Amino acid sequence: MVSAPFAPEFLEMLNDHQPRLRRVARLYCADADDRQDLYQEMVLQLWRAWPHYEARPEVQVGTWLYRVALNVAISDLRRRSRHPAAASLNGPDLPDLAAPPPEGPDPDDLAQLYRAIERLSNVEKAFVLLYLEERSYAEMADILGITQNNVRVKMHRVQDKLRQLLTQPA
């Protein structure tokens, strides 16, 4: 079966939002190959959903994109947890972050933060991602389908949990 080529509008949207999709993949996959597979699955699902999005122009593209990407990531995580991969002989995977500038954060601190984030639930990870993307509580509520007050409460709980995880000995 031959598929239709990507619409120029879709490709433009994808290029504009590629870093966000990659951050979602990073948050839900520690392994680089798994991240790439998840990213490709997100692109596929976005392409499949594109005609539905074009029919509802009142929805912001960023909100729609996050909904699709988070749903794909959580579904993929559930699927992988039902069929875990063989254990690595090289020890735990640490994030493959680009080298930060000299005045940037300490790589050990970033690794510790990613390990703490990996211990959060799927929903808590979504809150962290949206927070790091500097989304407003109104945008978070819209993306996650909950009230702004609920976002505030859950965000406070996630922040407390992360603080607790970061103060625990490794």
Rank of each mutant, 00 (worst) to 15 (best):
residue 161 K to C: 04
residue 3 S to N: 08
residue 30 A to V: 02
residue 153 V to Y: 07
residue 60 Q to K: 12
residue 72 V to Q: 09
residue 170 A to T: 15
residue 142 D to G: 08
residue 51 P to T: 00
residue 167 T to H: 13
residue 145 G to H: 04
residue 165 L to A: 13
residue 26 R to V: 01
residue 76 D to K: 12
residue 113 L to K: 14
residue 164 Q to L: 00
residue 147 T to K: 05
residue 113 L to T: 12
residue 170 A to W: 10
residue 141 A to L: 00
residue 12 E to A: 15
residue 35 R to S: 00
residue 76 D to M: 03
residue 94 L to G: 11
residue 115 R to Q: 14
residue 35 R to A: 04
residue 93 D to P: 00
residue 2 V to K: 15
residue 142 D to N: 10
residue 96 D to P: 06
residue 95 P to C: 03
residue 153 V to C: 00
residue 63 T to H: 10
residue 7 A to L: 07
residue 97 L to S: 09
residue 8 P to K: 15
residue 36 Q to V: 06
residue 163 R to P: 00
residue 2 V to L: 15
residue 131 Y to K: 08
residue 7 A to S: 15
residue 101 P to V: 10
residue 3 S to D: 05
residue 37 D to P: 09
residue 115 R to I: 03
residue 44 L to W: 12
residue 152 R to E: 04
residue 144 L to D: 02
residue 127 F to N: 12
residue 156 H to I: 01
residue 118 E to N: 11
residue 43 V to W: 01
residue 67 R to W: 05
residue 157 R to V: 12
residue 162 L to D: 00
residue 156 H to N: 08
residue 29 C to Y: 04
residue 53 Y to G: 07
residue 82 R to V: 06
residue 121 S to F: 08
residue 83 H to T: 10
residue 66 Y to R: 14
residue 46 L to V: 07
residue 92 P to G: 12
residue 89 L to R: 10
residue 79 R to I: 01
residue 112 Q to W: 04
residue 32 A to Y: 02
residue 65 L to W: 03
residue 54 E to S: 10
residue 136 S to V: 09
residue 83 H to R: 15
residue 95 P to N: 08
residue 122 N to P: 09
residue 30 A to F: 01
residue 143 I to Y: 06
residue 162 L to M: 10
residue 135 R to G: 03
residue 25 A to N: 06
residue 6 F to D: 14
residue 124 E to M: 05
residue 37 D to G: 00
residue 32 A to K: 07
residue 73 A to N: 00
residue 134 E to H: 06
residue 84 P to E: 03
residue 2 V to Y: 12
residue 5 P to A: 13
residue 57 P to I: 04
residue 38 L to V: 03
residue 139 E to Q: 13
residue 152 R to P: 01
residue 51 P to I: 02
residue 44 L to Y: 11
residue 165 L to W: 02
residue 99 A to L: 12
residue 74 I to F: 05
residue 108 D to S: 14
residue 104 G to A: 06
residue 96 D to Y: 09
residue 132 L to A: 14
residue 153 V to G: 04
residue 81 S to I: 02
residue 5 P to G: 08
